[in-house]
Structures are given as structure tokens and as C-alpha cells.
Design a protein around this nucleic acid. Structure first.
Lengths: 131, 131
DNA sequence: CTGGATCCTCCATGATACTG
DNA sequence: CAGTATCATGGAGGATCCAG
């Protein structure tokens, strides 16, 4: 039959919403910035350019796969610059682009809000959990 | 033997890092804000208080589970207020707290940055993909 | 109407081994 | 040194049924 179930309707609505959300610029920014390794790599590079091995040491818990994957997306998004020196063995340096630096600035703003208001959030949590 | 493998070392380092990251206030903020449904619920409530059923209609693609779960965490974090009216059937209204409103403000800041720079990111992506 | 409880699926992440 | 390839898994999220 051509009956449309509630589940089907919601599934369809979900697809539309997902598309709508995926198109939202701030959504895209949040998706990248909220990544654990992204923030760590960006803040690590905020101080100074680093080589691949230096990054993997500095961000001690990261696996090769995730570090590489993270660096690739950051490079693709124009946030970091990848410079290969064709010596033996190879040497690869990662630098923050101007765009990447401006992103780090925004993240600092988020940090500021968080430091200002997280204590309040934590009080709210304790209050909630104690009921 | 008491030999420590490289894998063990990284695993230990990972635990430390995870703990360190989990303690970071901005990390905690990002983790909540970056949630898809969180942003949708908050922006929906930014205009006006809404009932549960109104929310689920307005955020068309959400499942009951995720909507309830999202509202619970937001309530726990002191970002939304939950008011139950004991009629038959029950009526529950959700409102943004002052803290919640201030968070919406920050998210607007992120949105501003995104709208300003996402075109640049997308150009970078096209450039990267075309190589 | 507003959820709680269950089951199930899928994808992001990680561990491991290999290479130019 | 700086990755790529492959396989395994844990947990987030969805579908569904039930209840006050």
C-alpha cells in the first residue's frame, strides 16, 4: 500500500534536516573545531611550526592514523601548510596558515567564555545530581 | 619481563592526555555545543519557550530518544529550564535560562566567524581536491 | 502528552603491520 | 622519517514498544 508510516515521514524529514544542517556554515565549523585532535594540533602549531614526529611526540596520546588524518583535513581546509623537504629521510613541516591562526583566535574566544561560565555549569550539574 | 612496549607507553600517555583534555573547560564546552541536537534545541528555544511536542515538530528529524536525552543534559547543565504542569495529559515547557541565553550569544559569535571564513575554507577544499 | 527501557546497527577510532 | 593498508570494536544514535 501507499501508506506512509510515521517512521517513514520522520526518516524523510531527517534527511532534509541533515542536508540543511550540513549546509550551515557554523555547523561545519563546529564539526571541525570540536574534534579532539584538531584542537590539540592547532594549539600545538599556534606556538611554532612543527615536524610530523615533533607533533606526534608533543600530542603524546595520538595514533599515527589519527594524526595523519587530522593533518590532512586541516591541510585540505587551508588551515595548516604542509612543506615537504625531499631529503633522505624525508622531512615534513607543518605550519599554521593565516586562516588557521584566525581560527585559533576564535577558539580562544570560546575558551574565554568557557572559563567564565563553566563553574556555573558545574554548580548546576551538582545541584541536578543531588536531587 | 618488565619491558615496556611502545604501544603500552602510548596507551598510558593517552590516558593522561584524555584526563587532561577532559578537565579543560573549553573542551567541555565544545563537546556540548558541537552536538547537533543541542545547537538545534538551543536555537529553537532562543526565539520562544516551547513544549516538548512543539520542539519535536520544530526539529523535524529528531528521535524521541535524542530529544529527551538532549533536553536532560541541557537541563542538567543549567542551560534550559523544565516546567511541568500536572494536568491530564501532562504539559512540559522548556525555557532558556540566562546562562543558556549567554551560550546562544557565544554561538552567534562562532556563526559570525564561520560565515566570514567558510567561503575561504571551501575554496581551499576545491583547490586541494583538484590536485 | 511526555517520556523510559531495549535492542540493534553502523561508523569513527584504534591497534598492528608494512613501505618509499 | 612519514606515512599507507587492513582489520577489529566500542559506543553513539536510531527504531520500537511500553507506561504514568
Amino acid at each position: 500500500m501507499a501508506t506512509t508510516t510515521a517512521g517513514q515521514k520522520r526518516a524523510e524529514a531527517k534527511r532534509e534536516y541533515d542536508a540543511y544542517i550540513a549546509a550551515c556554515p557554523s555547523r561545519q565549523l563546529l564539526d571541525t573545531v570540536a574534534d579532539k585532535w584538531v584542537t590539540l594540533v592547532l594549539t600545538a602549531l599556534a606556538d611554532t611550526p612543527l615536524r610530523y614526529s615533533e607533533l606526534s611526540r608533543r600530542i603524546a596520546g595520538v595514533s599515527q592514523k589519527m594524526l595523519t588524518q587530522t593533518l590532512r583535513t586541516l591541510e585540505r581546509d587551508g588551515l595548516v601548510d604542509r612543506a615537504v623537504t625531499a631529503t633522505v629521510p624525508v622531512r615534513v613541516d607543518y605550519t599554521l596558515t593565516p586562516l588557521g591562526e584566525s581560527l585559533v583566535t576564535v577558539m580562544a574566544g570560546v575558551k574565554t567564555w568557557a572559563e567564565a561560565h563553566m563553574p556555573e555549569v558545574q554548580r548546576a550539574r551538582r545541584r541536578y545530581d543531588r536531587r
